[in-house]
């Protein structure tokens, strides 16, 4: 659908990195919002997110983080717009500007430190032993080390410090 970009010849703040020009074909039918499990209970209105994202920078909107990425909107959009993918792109734009929720920052730091998002605690280590499940410190250590190298290489540790 890239023809719409060329014809319109306009540049939107989020639009370029999104590489998702089909978003311009949205006709605001609201199927996405009607399918949204989160929108039932929160201020997330995915139809508005789609509309606003082509007009302005919405990195500040807390609603971006209320999406469970369930893909209902994307599956049902009659225009075939990759709505959930767009949410992911909008989120990474927000993250680049340092807009990271404290709980997410914490999980990221677990990953940097341990190679896991939910690290093993003492209680569950004991349970693992009781169940005769592997407690393979050498393999885990290697994983930890390599993940650290990769996260430094991609600049992720810097990104979450922002």
């Amino acid at each position: 659908m890239s023809y719409s970009v060329i014809r319109l010849n306009i540049s939107f703040p989020i639009f370029n990195p999104m590489k998702n020009p089909d978003i311009l074909t949205c006709f605001q039918c609201g199927t996405c919002h009607a399918s949204c499990p989160s929108g039932k209970y929160t201020s997330l209105n995915i139809r508005k997110i789609v509309r606003d994202s082509i007009k302005k920078d919405i990195s500040d909107q807390p609603e971006l983080w209320m999406c469970t990425t369930c893909y209902n909107c994307q599956e049902r959009c009659p225009r075939g717009i990759k709505v959930t993918d767009a949410v992911l792109t909008l989120r990474s734009e927000a993250v680049k500007k340092g807009k990271i929720l404290p709980a997410h920052r914490k999980v990221c730091n677990f990953l940097i430190k341990t190679g896991q998002s939910i690290p093993l605690d003492d209680k569950h280590l004991e349970i693992r032993k009781k169940l005769n499940l592997r407690t393979d410190e050498a393999s885990w250590k290697k994983a930890r080390k390599e993940v650290k190298v990769l996260l430094r290489s991609t600049g992720f540790d810097e990104l979450v410090k922002r």
């Binding site: 992911l88 989120r91 990474s92 993250v95 997410h104 190679g115 994983a143 991609t154 600049g155 990104l159």
Partner: peptide
């Protein structure tokens, strides 16, 4: 058998939203 030295997949909800290249790189490992 176990994929022994595996680390976090990494969890799509957070890392895929945060930085696509990081997400892809850890998954590729």
């Amino acid at each position: 058998s176990y994929l022994k030295e595996a680390a976090c997949c990494p969890a799509p909800g957070i890392y895929r939203s945060f930085d696509k290249i990081t997400w892809l790189t850890l998954a590729s490992r």
